[in-house]
Nucleic acid binder design. Structure first.
Lengths: 233, 233
DNA sequence: ATAAATTAGCTTGTATACAAGTATACAAAT
DNA sequence: ATTTGTATACTTGTATACAAGCTAATTTAT
């Protein structure tokens, strides 16, 4: 490829890993565009066009596409190419079920294992304010929400759990964005988050588990209703 | 690459997916060799040598290596290449914790959702005999065991859970093999399996969850002891 | 003799050419 | 008008050449 200055590839990245090598850049950019719906669901992803746009050759691009397809953010058929993964009600139900299984247990472990530094970080993230008058407020709010859940699972000190929850939170992002325009959670998720931190702080694993489960299932049902209202099957 | 007849690439594959394209073949072969310890932990994986041996070019090989590294069956450092992932006690603890979280809940869901056909398949797999006098008996026994757990999670009808458990079962394989030579589980896992099927059959989600949790934790502790005895940190 | 530095070899990273397969558009027949 | 067959253009699959970077061995200086 040319040695010309590469355009700023990294825009924003929800939970990125090594932002070093070329395939990782491409992965991060595509993931951001997919999760933000800048690349809409079911959009065809043609290697040559993406190569030209991102100024990379097909090799690192294909590596990124492969990663995304294994994370089920893009779908793939042999010799028929890649598409941005569609959003389905069934898929979202599976996702909620997964989160309802893993995150409450992770919260219970967090209650046993969180350090004082962890607690401080959790409290800070739960307190994170968002200005509803701002244009980007809803997206910021979603990402802050997501980050809080990530911090909780990190307290469980289990990288496998962490990876699963990270991936689940990523997949949760697009269905959430479809709710843009609708009112936010009337039960105020921030107070739920504080309640979770409270439980972790007093080492009450059972309460942490229960509140987390209710929090996830409540939010999930609201989004499912929105999906059905949007006639997404 | 040459058009000469390709050697039989697929040997045995625990849980393989599309066995169609070249990268999938390579993936399946490498995975089998890694999980069976034919490629021992920490072995360096040099692209050129593997290419020559498997008669493929670097492109499909690298795709397979990438997949394996994201599944944490091979480790990777930029410009320093791939190695077969090491086996660590900490990693195994995380794995047990993950399985203890996901599989009991999956068993509970299975109790709600299993069809008569599911129940028949579960019962058949739990009854699967193994001949302790056979040379390959231990490995067959492990794989039958693994397959039973896979069937249970399939009854939960959630592909995300299924993928997580499939991956976890794969990662469980190598630590189990290190126990070769030691006696098998004296508490007879087959009877535990039947107890799980019993619970699912009578739609007793609570019992299914409990028995599955005890089964996983019991087996995990025995293997952990073996790992420590083998001085694996 | 030991340790640091340099260089040679090897391995991985990227780009691109070529092969194989697919989809679409167009034409012809029902 | 609809459907089916075919050909063309396009997309993906694989191989390989070249560039960049790491490893390790060898040499030199202390």
């Amino acid at each position: 490829m040319s040695t010309a200055v590469r355009p700023s590839l990294i825009e924003i990245s929800p939970h990125t890993t090594r932002p070093t090598a070329l395939p990782d850049h491409v992965y991060a950019v595509l993931k951001q565009r997919i999760l933000s719906c800048a690349l809409p669901p079911n959009e065809r992803l043609i290697e040559k066009k993406l190569c030209a746009e991102l100024r990379v050759s097909r090799t690192p691009l294909r590596e990124a596409l492969n990663r995304l397809s294994h994370e089920e953010l893009v779908s793939f058929q042999p010799h028929a190419g890649y598409r941005v993964a569609g959003i389905t009600l069934a898929g979202f139900k599976n996702l909620i079920e997964l989160r309802s299984i893993v995150e409450p247990q992770a919260a219970a472990l967090a209650a046993e294992r969180a350090t004082p530094a962890d607690l401080a970080a959790l409290r800070a993230q739960a307190t994170q304010p968002h200005d509803p008058s701002e244009e980007h407020s809803f997206i910021q709010y979603c990402q802050a929400n997501s980050h809080f859940h990530l911090l909780v699972v990190r307290c469980a000190r289990n990288s496998m759990l962490e990876n699963i929850v990270m991936s689940a939170l990523d997949m949760y992002q697009r269905p959430t964005y479809l709710r843009i325009g609708r009112q936010m959670d009337p039960s105020n998720p921030s107070s739920k988050h504080h309640a979770i931190v409270d439980a972790i702080e007093r080492r009450d694993a059972e309460a942490a588990r229960t509140i987390m489960r209710q929090h996830i299932q409540g939010g999930g049902e609201r989004i499912m209703a929105a999906l059905q209202a949007a006639h997404i099957t």
